[in-house]
């Protein structure tokens, strides 16, 4: 920081302008990201997700294509898009449903224990170099969520008028 004091005032003005520009750009970027996240969160219900597509059309063939993503999730497996997605889909869902991944939450170490257990007892093959890529994907996308107390508040309550 001391170096700055040796620079001419012109340089300092230039630097100041640059910083202001940078801050404005950063601010716009944060705004965009927040907006994007908000949009994704809020639009979760009304957008034509899997759910509405299926309820509108009885035939599930429409959505069973390979490599199609809706809301950042693979239509076929529900796995989120991300580095290592193809490896996980190919190696994990050839024996068991992706539901076993979707409903669990582990650290990288925890997921490794599951892979080792499947290799020791369930006939999973050696994953070679792909193992660390698979673990990266699982740890990044299916990590334990923040804890909410010894018992969480009741959630997803569907209120209804009791008639009887």
């Amino acid at each position: 920081m001391k170096d700055h004091s040796t620079k001419s005032s012109k340089d300092q003005r230039h630097l100041f302008k640059g910083i202001i520009k940078g801050v404005i750009a950063l601010f716009i970027l944060i705004l965009l990201i927040t907006g994007g996240i908000l949009f994704l969160t809020l639009s979760n219900g009304p957008t034509p997700t899997l759910q509405t597509i299926n309820s509108n059309n009885e035939s599930p063939t429409l959505v069973s294509g390979n490599g199609q993503f809706v809301d950042g999730k693979d239509v076929e497996t529900g796995l989120v898009k991300g580095d290592g997605f193809e490896l996980v889909k190919a190696n994990c869902t050839s024996c068991h449903s992706s539901a076993l991944i979707l409903q669990n939450r582990f650290t990288r170490e925890g997921w490794k224990v599951k892979i080792e257990w499947m290799q020791e007892t369930q006939g999973l093959w050696d994953l070679g170099n792909n193992e660390s890529l698979i673990l990266d994907y699982l740890a990044a996308n299916y990590a334990p969520e923040a804890y909410v107390g010894r018992r969480a508040p009741l959630k997803d309550i569907e209120w209804y008028e009791l008639k009887e």
Binding site: G67, E76, K89, L102, Q103, D156
Partner: peptide
């Protein structure tokens, strides 16, 4: 995510066809 596996998503009846297609797609993907 749990909810996304529930009934509105997959019609419960006639899942067999869906399962067959998705399994075949998985094999293709593999």
């Amino acid at each position: 995510e749990t909810k996304s596996l529930q009934s509105p998503n997959y019609p419960l009846q006639g899942r067999r066809g869906f399962l067959r297609k998705s399994i075949l797609a998985s094999i293709a993907a593999t």
